[in-house]
Amino acid sequence: MAGDGSAGPGPGPGPGLVRLDLGSLRGASRAPVHLLPCVVEHDGSAAVDRYFTPAIRPQGGRSEKAVSFRGRSLQGQEVPVPQGYVGLVLKEDAQPCLEEEEERTVRVKSVFTELTAWNLEQAPSGDDGILMAMSWPKISEGLHAPVPEEEP
């Protein structure tokens, strides 16, 4: 993994290019991620460890959990990220006033290897979109792997 933050060879940054600074991966912490079954109209800090995490109880299944969130009972499922992948939380550098040609940079803020998907009534199962989506990398391999070369 290079990610030294320097521009690669070839064409310089053009319009629409965004650099992901992989150097920032080294210092990135692990942060638990929860996919909530509701919209929260807010971006910013939240006392997750104070109110949400302590309320999580294990359920029957090994990776199943339950929690109460604002008076609602949520059913959750731990979902590992697909094999060979890593979960990244990215944040773009503050950009006061970007010129057209200026390259933008996003940095790794935290990493995750699993996420907890929450539903309102039933714990997420195979037909939940999030679990189906996790098979996308495998399916996409079929589409994008090189085709076998013919025998000479």
Partner: peptide, 9 residues
């Protein structure tokens, strides 16, 4: 859908 990420929403 929204996320909890660490101590943030």
């Amino acid at each position: 859908h929204s996320w909890f990420i660490g101590q943030a929403v």
